[in-house]
Nucleic acid binder design. Structure first.
Lengths: 108, 108
DNA sequence: CGGACGTATAACTCGATGGTTATGGGATGA
DNA sequence: TCATCCCATAACCATCGAGTTATACGTCCG
């Protein structure tokens, strides 16, 4: 619930396998570990570990049903990422308003 | 110029030291390696290496002036990040429109 | 109860990477 | 020219993390 720093989000999403798992949960909705493992290209323990990292980052939630565990994406956790990115772009635009900097850019 | 995949961007920005360098260039504009090193908390070679990685990712550009090198941020390179993030959020909202999925969510 | 199934954890290996010190190499200036 | 400065590269080291196999734990079913 508490918004996490962009640092954990960047680190968590930097791994392609892990990011692919998150993407699949975003696109296709809730899925079990088995279903995710079937097309992940890595072993089941690897998938479980990645899902744990995603959960620690607040990007997914898990739901236990019998002997299987369903995971679903929580894309709201991406908010700090959007904030950080638009803030960086914002600084850039603000500096664009600075005439001196603008001129310095133009003669490049 | 060609838009790079989010993969390289995530990996490049996952390191805190490197991301801090990029943030400073976004906030404060063009700076030399020496100026960046002074407050980076790591050695000058480490800073140079980080700047090289940022350049390879298209996030910064360098300009040689005498014996010093000026780096500046290219926040436009963040576009794929924004795209990816909003796309993930978009999938989530679209799935929310699916009545079946909505009902499945409601009885949880 | 006992075996098969689904998932998580343990223990380990190994390659990637971020840090360091040492050095190279071009630019500046006495 | 020679010393100094700024930055990049080289070479090396240590840590981290993603993958593996093996195993433990809980659930379903016969």
């Amino acid at each position: 619930m508490t918004p996490l720093s962009p640092d954990l989000l960047f680190k968590t999403l930097a791994d392609p396998t892990r990011r692919a798992l998150f993407e699949r949960l975003c696109r296709e909705g809730e899925q079990t570990v088995g279903a995710l493992t079937a097309r992940a290209g890595v072993s089941q323990p690897a998938v479980s570990k990645h899902l744990g990292v995603l959960r620690d980052a607040g990007l997914v939630s898990d739901r236990h049903e019998g002997r299987q565990t369903h995971y679903r994406a929580l894309p709201g956790a991406l908010a700090p990422l959007l904030d950080w990115t638009s803030q960086m772009a914002g600084f850039w635009e603000r500096r664009f308003d600075d005439l001196e900097d603008l001129l310095k850019r133009m003669d490049q």
